[in-house]
């Protein structure tokens, strides 16, 4: 059955979003249709605002509407620690943990199969940030997969000659899981990163 053209267009647009299939897109479109005009306008304005006003912080490359971003501009944060993450949404996860240092977003990882090499990442600006000597520790919080590990190793080799302490976030068993279900690589990593209590 053919729907009205504007509704079809909305469904098509929603379908392009990650994790939204045909049925979910249809459900969301009808929800917008049933909702008030104000709600629809607010949604449309928010979508446009994201595109029109957001950019990357020139220091940490996080997504921001002001430059430098709120985190980089916050005088109460520990400026001796920089936590390196792959993507802006990874930063949110670290921030929730209560980390109070600064960040650097690489916008990817070294991923040969996707054609992503070191020159495609925000590595040069990271090294530039470390020049003045105020950063004492760089925490490599790239994802715990093959690409994230290779990126962390690559960065650690670049950081060593600069005299900056490079640390890797601990890898291992997720809280709330059970040991018997963990695979050998995960358990191996957990044993390797064990600490005294």
């Amino acid at each position: 059955m053919r729907l009205a053209a504007p509704l079809e267009r909305l469904i098509e647009a929603l379908r392009k979003l990650p994790g939204i299939g045909a049925k979910s897109a249809q459900r969301l479109a009808f929800h917008v249709l049933r909702g008030s005009r104000d709600d629809a306008r607010a949604l449309a304005t928010a979508l446009l605002e994201v595109k029109d006003t957001l950019r990357l912080c020139t220091l940490c490359f996080n997504v921001t509407d002001i430059d430098p971003c709120l985190i980089c501009a916050d005088a109460n944060r520990d400026r001796s620690q920089v936590c390196v993450v792959e993507e802006p949404h990874n930063l949110i996860a670290i921030e929730k943990s209560g980390f109070r240092g600064l960040y650097h977003v690489l916008h990817g990882s070294i991923a040969p199969l996707r054609g992503m090499g070191p020159d495609d990442l925000k590595i040069a600006p990271l090294l530039e940030r470390l020049r003045d000597g105020s950063v004492k520790e760089v925490i490599l919080a790239t994802n715990p997969n093959v690409e994230g590990e290779a990126t962390a190793v690559y960065l650690s080799r670049l950081l060593k000659p600069l005299g900056v302490r490079a640390t890797r976030i601990a890898l291992g068993l997720p809280v709330g899981s059970e040991l018997e279900y963990a695979d050998e690589v995960t358990v191996g990593k957990a044993l390797e990163g064990r600490r005294e209590i």
Partner: peptide, 10 residues
């Protein structure tokens, strides 16, 4: 997995 941690080998 461990083999691919080295960027060049990976």
């Amino acid at each position: 997995y461990r083999l691919q941690e080295d960027p060049e080998r990976g």
